[in-house]
Amino acid sequence: MDEWMKRCVQKVQEGDTDAFSEIVNAFKDRVYQISYRMLGNSQEAQDIAQEAFLRAYTNLSSYDPNRKFSTWLFRITTNLSIDKLRKRKPNYSLDAEVEGTEGLDGYSQLAAQDVLPDEQVVMLEWQASIQKEISALPPKYRAAIILKYMEDLSLQEMSEILNLPVATVKTHVHRGREALRKRLKKW
């Protein structure tokens, strides 16, 4: 994987744009997952995920090939997501109607899965409820929980992505987990 990745990056740097589509294909789900879980809204998540890949493309020369590409890419994604959250109007919530889409709230924008319709509904509600709880966390704890339990990353990688010391990352995971625990008690 790493060797293949390195070759892909090199090809793009040499001007082979098509090689970049292989990189996008390899990482789009994970990048989208981070942005979606951070923002809780598929439209914004899609914009941010796309922006993350565009930034990666234009700044490819600043990527150090001796480090993991995914770490670098996820760092761009989390930074963009956190910026987006900061710029948002306060009190933004999934229950709020999305501008210009009357009657359509955040839940209906969730990514559809390829399952039977009945199960799909249950699945969507399930996903939406968990997402709602995650969205209630402060962004820094949210990022820690997403990277740790959804992306399954090591503390070391998380520390590089979030640009925080490992000890701080650990604290953020713990606090996020505790906050979630209290909210999920009733489940």
Binding site: Y32, A49, A111, Q113, Q127, I130, Y149, M150, D152, W187
Partner: peptide
């Protein structure tokens, strides 16, 4: 619960 929610695909 958190881990179970982690299967999202890009559009």
């Amino acid at each position: 619960l958190t881990q179970s929610a982690s299967h999202i695909e890009a559009p």
